[in-house]
Each structure stands twice: as structure tokens, then as C-alpha cells.
Design a protein around this nucleic acid. Structure first.
Lengths: 167, 167
DNA sequence: GCCACTGTTCAATTTTGTTTGAACAAATCA
DNA sequence: TGATTTGTTCAAACAAAATTGAACAGTGGC
């Protein structure tokens, strides 16, 4: 294997390690696995695109992790495939526009929960109307209505978010 | 023990279980432990305030969990203490204004991460300026600058969030 | 002062979620 | 066609995080 054409397969240098660790912390806040942060972080400070086994070799993670991590990053729109050197590997580059990253996260991780929440509350509201005791029924309806306004407000936020982040 | 004065210590009825499960799912999205969702959820559909051992008995969780969960909910401003019956227990009620809940979450869980992120990036930027290779240094500075704008944009969002949620 | 009650702490346990690695599929090459 | 390379899948191993429960501290009643 030739370093000039195959890239650098040593362990990370100290600066790279620090940057990766920033991303590892960052994705933990978002509730994503550490490997996602490692992979995205390394792509983020790498000038050239990297292949799956670049990631395996440089981060010291398994092929399985790298494969699953890249799949999730692709679904989030956080990495894109590029055609790399003359070989038949797939190479990856990070998407670095915050707007795009936030958009992917909202689409994949936030919206589905809001939708399913809205649905569950509708079911609950129907159930609550079968309650005998009128005082209890009234109370439950008030609370469930409030829950609904929470979801509505949250939904209103998302476009605003995307607008602000797109700058 | 008298049910009329001490409250209902049976297991949850189906509707209560469903509501609690909505909150359990909700807090998981936010990266908080399930017990937080259980406790807040039960308070949310309970007409009267509840004591620590009401929570223990009705949710079937340990005293330790209930105590730690209430501590976190207090720090988030998601519950408030009220003086209950004639006994010397502390009773709790949920805060149900989305504005307040979001504010607490942002203050306790979001801002600290943004701050520490900003700090780490400053450290990194200093390190990057020691890099010999000018091309590499330039690239790193560009990327770190971008990271900084991410944090800045994210910070700008928080007040907007609070404004929209406060309606 | 002693007992009963309420709530906290934290080491041990349990649960949940992530990573690994071996088996496999698909694609390319010779 | 068979050998090689690239990447995926998923059950098992592992790691991280939450929960338990027993010991403890504080408080009030008697």
C-alpha cells in the first residue's frame, strides 16, 4: 500500500483528535451514537474525501460501525458520496452548511416524533370523552388540549429554525 | 391508610398509562431518562398534587428514582412544590406552560453545551495557528471558523424559540 | 431523648443502546 | 468461472446509563 495514493492511515494527530472529540460531544447532545460524531468529525477536518476503510483505519472502529454510521449520516444528509481516486471504493465528504444539517435532523429525528405524538393525543382525546365523571372529563380535556397546543407550537418553530440557521 | 385523604394508590388506569407513555416517549427525544417522563406525565394528568410516595406507589418506581427525578424536574422548572394536606410531605404540581418548560430545558441542557463548545473551539483555533503547513493551516482555520458560526447561529435561535413557545 | 417519618445518596444491579466481527451479498477483475 | 475487493447485516459482546434498595441524614412529635 502506497501512502501517496492511498492516503494517511496512521492514528489521528492531536488536533484531529480534539476536533473529533468536539463532534462526539456534539452528537451526544443530539442523542446520536458516538461513532456518528467520530466519522463526521474526521470528515470535517479532512481536506480530501475518505472511504469507508479510511475511516476504519484512522478511527480504529469496526467496518460494521463505519458502515452503519455512514448510512445514518447519509440519511441525515450530513455526508455525500463523491467519486474518489481511480479505485472502486465510495468516497465521502461532509455537508458543512448548518441549514442542511439541521434540516436533515429535523426531517429524520424531530418531525416523526411530532407526528406520532399528535396521533397519540388524538387517540387519547377520544378515550377521554368516554370518561363518566364530568369533572374528570373536563379536566382531562383541558390538559389534552394543552398538549395539542404544545405540539402545534413546536411544529411552528421548525420553519423558523431552518430560516435562522440558513444564514 | 384512608383513600379519601391519602389519595389513590392503585396502579394507573389505562388512560393514565397512555398519557404517561406519551411523556416517556417525549422525554426520550430530549435525551432525558424515562423516569422523568413517568413522573411528569403522572403529575400532568393528576388533578391534585402528589407527594414523592404517591409517585413511588402509583408508578411502581423506587424512592431513589422518584427523588432523583423530582430533583431534575425541579432544576428544569418543570414542577413546583406546593403545600399539600396536613402532613409534612412535600407535594408537587407540574408547570404546564410550554414557555417555562422550554426555558428550563434550554437553560439547563442546551446553553451549557453551547458555552463549552465555544470554548473548545477557541482552544482549537489557537492550536491550529501553530500548524506549519500554510495550506493545511488555512483549511483548518476555515473549518473552525465555520464551526464558530454554527455555534453563533444556534445561540441566536434560543430567544426566538422562547418567543414562539411563549404563546 | 427516642421513635417514626420523609427524603437523599450512592454502590450494586439491571436495562438499554452501541459496537464488534464473522458470515454474507454484490460487484469487478482476470 | 473463480478469486478478490467492497460494503452490509445481525447476533453476540460490550459499554454506558438508569434504576434499585439499603444505609443514612434531617425533622418533627411525644
Amino acid at each position: 500500500m502506497d501512502e501517496l495514493t492511498q492516503g494517511n492511515h496512521h492514528e489521528l494527530d492531536p488536533l484531529e483528535r480534539q476536533v473529533v472529540s468536539v463532534f462526539v460531544d456534539g452528537v451526544r447532545v443530539l442523542g446520536l451514537p458516538r461513532s456518528i460524531g467520530e466519522i463526521y468529525g474526521l470528515l470535517f477536518i479532512s481536506e480530501s474525501s475518505l472511504s469507508l476503510d479510511d475511516l476504519v483505519l484512522r478511527l480504529g472502529i469496526s467496518k460494521g460501525s463505519a458502515s452503519q454510521g455512514l448510512r445514518m449520516l447519509k440519511s441525515l444528509g450530513a455526508v455525500r458520496e463523491v467519486d474518489g481516486g481511480g479505485d472502486r471504493r465510495t468516497y465521502y465528504e461532509p455537508a458543512i452548511e448548518l441549514k442542511r444539517l439541521a434540516g436533515g435532523f429535523i426531517r429524520e429525528q424531530v418531525r416523526p416524533h411530532l407526528e406520532s405524538g399528535k396521533h397519540k393525543i388524538n387517540v387519547l382525546t377520544a378515550t377521554a370523552n368516554d370518561i363518566e365523571d364530568p369533572a374528570r372529563r373536563k379536566f382531562l380535556n383541558e390538559r389534552l388540549e394543552r398538549l395539542e397546543t404544545w405540539i402545534t407550537s413546536s411544529g411552528r418553530i421548525l420553519p423558523v429554525l431552518q430560516k435562522i440557521l440558513g444564514q
